[in-house]
């Protein structure tokens, strides 16, 4: 009987059409292209700038990328949990000023005669507190991340000034001596910290169920909810993580500059750009820890290479700007559509 049944009321809505592999190929090209660009820039500097390839110089690049790198890693967490839409999705504008505040806390703590332990604890607490404020306002009060973290940014900037009176607070401690030193000789400890933090976050984000779920929360919130994930907690955790990264970066910054410094807010946009640039280094065109690390190092290499070649460092911002535009133009064409 079934064969004679012909009276459909409606037509089928869709017939499966296998998607072309072209997009996949193009995406691979972009990724390969950006890696190639990385290698090409590297090779150009190696050929043109004597001393660029020396182990000491390369180690230096890693060390000098440490502060911005750790900051951008924190930003990466928020971008992962919030999704790629920068305005409605995840962004933490408070990272840079949070760093400034934490540096002030650490430096003044040491200045007040606290030991490293107490000062570190206070610094971490300050960073986490800012992260917690962001988490509460974004997740539970429903304020747009851009605005909530903007307000937090202002508060951080003010509190930093209150602590430092807009001056450089010199600081020294055994920990700072270690951090600003080289161990083994020729390898800046700051660089090792950057790699360590990146490794730790890479493990959490890319090798644990929690990391995978964080990506789900950012990638398709409804799907994450349907899978029974506590979406709010994941988003909140990303802001806490970002706050803690700012605290870590602040200690590195104090080590690098032998004290707290003013004007940390200038690092914000660099951190945003670093995290977003990293997207091209991932197969899925999403923010990843290795991607962000690579992009931080890439910018570090640019600055370093320009210095060695006596090219004005004033070109660096412009090159970053052009890069971000290229990256965005390329990725927006290739990002897979929502299912």
């Amino acid at each position: 009987m079934p064969d004679t049944v012909q009276s459909h009321i409606a037509l089928p809505v869709d017939v499966a059409v296998p998607r072309s592999r072209a997009a996949d190929t193009a995406r691979t090209l972009v990724r390969a292209g950006s890696l190639l660009a990385f290698v090409a820039v590297f090779a150009a500097f190696a050929a043109a700038a004597p001393g660029f390839l020396s182990a000491g110089n390369l180690a230096n690049v890693v060390g000098q990328s440490a502060v911005i790198g750790v900051l951008a890693l924190g930003m990466t967490l928020v971008v992962v949990a919030g999704g790629n839409d920068v305005v409605r999705g995840g962004i933490d504008l408070s990272v840079a000023n949070n760093l400034g505040l934490c540096a002030a806390v650490y430096a003044t703590g040491l200045g007040a005669g606290w030991g490293d332990g107490a000062a570190l604890a206070a610094t971490a607490l300050a960073g986490l507190l800012v992260g917690a404020v962001n988490a509460v306002s974004v997740v539970w009060l429903g304020i747009l991340p851009l605005l909530a973290t903007l307000a937090a940014m202002n508060v951080c900037a003010g509190l930093e000034l209150v602590l430092t009176h807009n001056t450089v607070v010199a600081a020294s401690s055994p920990l700072l001596d270690v951090l600003s030193g080289e161990y083994p000789a020729g390898v800046p400890v700051l660089g090792e910290v950057l790699l360590g933090v990146a490794a730790l976050l890479a493990v959490v984000l890319h090798l644990t169920p929690a990391g995978l779920r964080l990506y789900a929360v950012g990638g398709h919130r409804e799907a994450a909810r349907a899978a029974g994930l506590p979406v709010a907690s994941y988003v909140a955790a990303s802001y806490l993580g970002s706050g803690l990264c700012a605290a870590v970066a602040s200690v590195l910054s104090v080590a690098l500059l032998s004290g707290s410094t003013t004007g940390s807010g200038d690092m914000l946009l660099a951190a945003v750009v670093t995290a977003l640039l990293g997207v091209v280094f991932s197969r899925r065109l999403v923010a990843t820890i290795p991607g962000t690390l690579l992009s931080a190092l890439f910018i570090g290499i640019l600055i370093n290479g320009f210095q060695l070649l006596n090219i004005s460092s004033y070109w660096v911002n412009g090159v970053q700007g052009v890069l971000i535009l290229l990256v965005v133009a390329a990725t927006s064409m290739l990002r897979p559509n929502a299912g």
């Binding site: 946009l269 750009v273 977003l276 004005s312 911002n317 970053q320 700007g321 052009v322 535009l325 965005v328």
Partner: peptide, 30 residues
Amino acid sequence: LIAGLRITPFLATLGTLFIGQSVQQLSTSG
């Protein structure tokens, strides 16, 4: 960038901001 190349405004103007910084630094000796 935004109307022609369809880059999202946030990123397009962020790029402009960075390029503008270089332009100013280069034309005022830093």
